[in-house]
């Protein structure tokens, strides 16, 4: 279908999506950036205040250092969960491409937690972890350290299966001739893994790191259900901290919006860095 014939059909083909996209994304996004420079309690009483909100985000006297704490907490959480999820996901994917008996059953079971929503997952693990900690007279909300490892365990349980699926697809795309050639040349199993399989599944590794990284940074539901940021706001990840700034503290809407912009910039920077990294790798191959 060429351009000329299709163009008059804009109303039917593209307009519904475009209008919904304006309502659902473009307008809120633009308004959000504008409001981050304003003081407001509802959208109608916004008064521009310049960069005051941004300064407040990083001001220990106004925000009690909560955002900075959440930023470090989230960064640490993202690093640990990216490493553990990808490591275990890749190991299980390697095992499940060996043609072991029961492969399909294992794959089904490992993927299952992904379909369960974050809120439900949070309460499942709250029950289990509190049950274990109760033996030592502790609870998840006793210290942010327990909340941290609780979230790590939860995210591993949920996301290993998802990454496993992507790694399996990557490993199955390695041409068998390459592995045979390496074996004929006398490569050991470990050498085949390190010098043939790993370089060939690099695209999958990039995708999975990207997914786990952004998932960890954007995590909200699990955090809300598992600890709700307790004790105090010590186990808040960035997303929950922003939510609580908006809806938990009166008069802090502007600061919350400024936090949201900073948060978006961080996530955006991570995504761009990741894309750039993928690009250089593709050139090398």
């Amino acid at each position: 279908m060429s351009k000329k014939e299709l163009r008059p059909y804009f109303l039917l083909f593209a307009l519904p999506t475009f209008i919904a996209f304006l309502i659902g994304f473009v307008v809120p996004f633009g308004l959000g950036i504008y409001l981050s420079f304003c003081k407001f309690t509802t959208v109608n009483d916004a008064v521009p205040v310049g960069f005051a909100n941004y300064l407040a985000v990083f001001d220990k006297n106004i925000d009690n250092g909560e955002f900075i704490h959440a930023l470090w907490y989230t960064t640490l959480f993202a690093i640990v969960s990216v490493i553990t999820i990808n490591f275990f996901g890749f190991c299980i994917a390697m095992l499940l491409t060996k043609g072991i008996r029961g492969t399909n059953v294992f794959r089904t079971v490992f993927f299952m937690p992904n379909l369960i929503g974050g809120i439900v997952l949070g309460y499942i693990w709250q029950l289990i972890l509190n049950g274990i900690l109760a033996r030592f007279d502790l609870t998840l909300t006793f210290s942010e350290v327990y909340g941290f490892w609780g979230l790590i365990i939860l995210m591993n349980w949920q996301q290993i299966g998802y990454m496993m699926i992507i790694y399996i697809a990557g490993i199955q795309n390695v041409p068998p001739e390459l592995i045979e050639a390496a074996k004929i040349d006398g490569a050991t199993g470990r050498q085949v893994l390190g010098h043939v399989i790993l370089p060939m599944v690099m695209p999958s590794i990039t995708i999975c790191t990207f997914l786990t990284l952004t998932n960890s940074f954007k995590l909200f539901d699990q955090n809300l259900a598992l600890t709700n940021g307790l004790p105090g706001s010590k186990s808040e990840l960035l997303a929950l901290n922003i939510y609580n700034t908006f809806y938990g503290r009166v008069g802090f809407e502007g600061v919350g919006q400024a936090k949201a912009v900073v948060f978006s910039l961080i996530v955006g920077a991570l995504a761009i860095a990741q894309l750039a990294a993928t690009h250089t790798k593709e050139v090398q191959q």
Binding site: F25, V27, G32, V267
Partner: peptide, 20 residues
Amino acid sequence: LCVFSMIVPFQMVMYTLSKT
């Protein structure tokens, strides 16, 4: 814009989307 919107976290538009 569509590609861009995939990267933006929900918290960015959370408040303004609910008002809209």
